[in-house]
Nucleic acid binder design. Structure first.
Lengths: 324, 324
DNA sequence: AGTCGTTACGATGCCCGTAAGGATA
DNA sequence: TATCCTTACGGGCATCGTAACGACT
């Protein structure tokens, strides 16, 4: 067995079992890839791929299990390279973050500024994505850390480190009928068309639960991944905007009437998510502690070794998180 | 990086940084090994081994971290081979068990008989060892499972699956002054020389704690790993024997006076220990369930994914273990 | 006919083992 | 002087890429 063969089978799976595409992605010839997977199958004495005729169509049961370990192995190989980079050039490196628009626009900039001052040679890449994209990216090891609010609890191979709580606000144009209101009930809110984030009202989400517990149905007319887009539509009179309070700038106070609804909805918690078993470089720990001061290296390392939510909750029970 | 290079560095560490010995163990030439580790160090751009002159003397800090991942990688490689064997020849294979003398002599034989009837083609290897040897063997992945009573709680990379509780008995020659006694106090026991298992009274052990809580000091004159040896010495009048009740055969009732001391000492728990992340073959699950009927595949898989003792305790809280 | 995978073949390059050299105790 | 690691060199083998072939859509 060779590491290269494991790389090959992973790439083949990634390209939906098209060997030619996989070979291209691996910058090698297609017959070479074919031959190597054949050699691997011969050595192991079993087929890894299902075939119809000559084409590969999927993984066998054995192939699936082996693929899981192959991914683990390559992740660890990549960890070894990371360790050596940490040693050879501690100041250089990359920091790949995948997160939502709100984070990258409103909460990350000042952290990145401070981080950049300390580590000017680290190149920072920020990828934006939907919750689903975020979770996939982090699970594939394509980003070092994710900053997300929900939806990653499900996976055992990802740790969630709670960073801070945040509340929501309603924004309406200054000319809106609600423009004089200071407080709002859930019932009142349900009477207006709502413009908010994508996925904010997916089944089982905190907002969805709050509404259904009171027997009300929100009237969501438009969703975006982007608070700025929501603001634009609200300005045009598309509906009342329901966004994170931290996405409201000083300038927005001129354009909108803002109603704090932190009493209506439970606060959400923003978390840093890391794939378990990943070797983190010193500067990554530094970045995290800049983002959330209570997440010291010690705490992070402890959290990464825990398995269930219960132990995590216990670990973080002694912290009072900042509210934004 | 190649898998072979990782094998080489692991073997070098295993042989106390003697490249020549490592090369012998790997059935290859010494210069070949030298060259490969040099290539690896060049590729990673950092030294893995400390050197004094030309000799290797130890691991660098980086080397140590990399070694950890190298071991993980090779363990997963070996898991892949195991998976393919499971597919190609489900009934063939090996079952390597490392355990204490008491288990292998008194509790395993009947399980192995039943197992062998079901899987005649699996060759079973039983290694005996001291608690320390047992834990090392399982952590190095040199055995599939360990059956042990204590001392493996410490390691995060090993799961402990509780199997049954067991009690202790005192044995004395029929001519002994205690030969007419049916019950015994801790104080009485402390007045006699004791012959028992090695490590039974190491600091922090259940027996040690029981004695020190009552302010008494046991007088241990002789220890063995082996209940049979203990019996021999007790027969010769060396002292009173303190052994597991399950190590007492019908025949022993003729030679010894037996006093049950289950009221004096808390019962101990025998556990099956498995290295986390190991792929277990079907027959291994079968063996375990024969040994402890409550340890079904489902339960074992759950336990192997848990990290802390607390969650494990919770998982097993619904079972009432057999007492032997 | 076009896409995709297999087989065949020649060249490159890597790895291994032997042999010789140097350092250290 | 014995042990142990490094360097040097030649042979063998695995891998790679090109090219031609076969199967399926």
């Amino acid at each position: 067995m060779k590491l290269q063969q494991l790389k090959y089978i992973i790439e083949i799976e990634k390209h939906h079992f098209n060997i030619s595409l996989a070979a291209d992605a691996l910058f090698t010839s297609q017959p070479g890839v074919s031959k190597q997977i054949k050699l691997l199958e011969d050595e192991l004495g079993c087929l890894l791929f299902l075939r119809s005729g000559r084409k590969l169509t999927g993984l066998t049961e054995t192939g699936f299990k082996i693929m899981c370990y192959a991914k683990k192995i390559l992740a660890d190989v990549s960890n070894i390279y990371t360790i050596s980079e940490e040693y050879t050039s501690p100041e250089k490196g990359q920091l790949n973050i995948v997160t939502s628009h709100t984070q990258s626009q409103y909460s990350l900039p000042c952290v990145i500024k401070r981080f950049n001052a300390k580590y000017p040679k680290i190149s920072i890449n920020i990828h934006q994505g939907t919750p689903l994209q975020i979770s996939n990216t982090i699970r594939k090891g394509e980003a070092d850390l994710a900053i997300a609010t929900e939806a990653l609890h499900l996976y055992k191979d990802v740790v969630m480190l709670p960073c801070y709580h945040w509340h929501r606000s309603i924004i309406v144009p200054k000319t809106h009928t609600l423009a004089t209101t200071k407080t709002l009930t859930l019932h009142q809110l349900s009477l207006y068309p709502i413009v908010t984030y994508q996925f904010a009202f997916t089944e089982g989400s905190p907002l969805d639960i709050t509404f259904s517990l009171s027997g009300l149905t929100p009237n969501v007319v438009f969703t975006a991944t982007d608070a700025d887009v929501i603001k634009t539509y609200v300005k045009q009179g598309a509906g009342v905007g329901l966004i994170a309070s931290m996405a409201i700038t000083k300038k927005d106070a001129d354009s909108f009437h803002i109603i704090d609804v932190s009493t209506l909805f439970k606060p959400s918690t923003t978390c840093i998510c890391i794939k378990k078993g990943t070797f983190l470089r010193l500067y990554m720990y530094e970045f995290i502690v800049l983002f959330a001061p209570h997440l010291t290296r010690d705490i992070i390392e402890k959290a990464m070794h825990l398995s269930d939510e219960h132990s995590l909750d216990k670990l973080f029970s002694c912290f009072t998180l900042e509210v934004k």
